[in-house]
Amino acid sequence: QEPLTASILASAPCEEQKQMLGERLFPLIQAIHPELAGKIISTVLEIDNSELLHMLQSPESLHSKVDEVVAVLQDHKAKEVVQTAG
């Protein structure tokens, strides 16, 4: 599979660009966090496409962002549990 570049991405319709990035990010993130991959990707897709492209090319950047998002998701879940418990 050829690398996803900014020019390839730019040639796609706006609504498909996030989809393309998500498809490429999925196996990478699934390898790090299999259980949370879907939620992590839905969260990181809110980031600028240029940064997402950088994450595809830089494992360090990808791991850093994944750690950040996992912390946010776990914090969100913890708050929901507290609210649900009253």
């Binding site: 996030k18 998500g22 999925f26 991959a37 879907g38 897709l45 809110e46 969100h76 929901e80 649900t84």
Partner: peptide
Amino acid sequence: SNGSSINWPPEFHPGVPWKGLQNIDP
């Protein structure tokens, strides 16, 4: 629905069109 947003955010699945978080209420 049980009225809880504990399952938010929605999950991205390969092959399923992604419409973004803004289009989905928590």
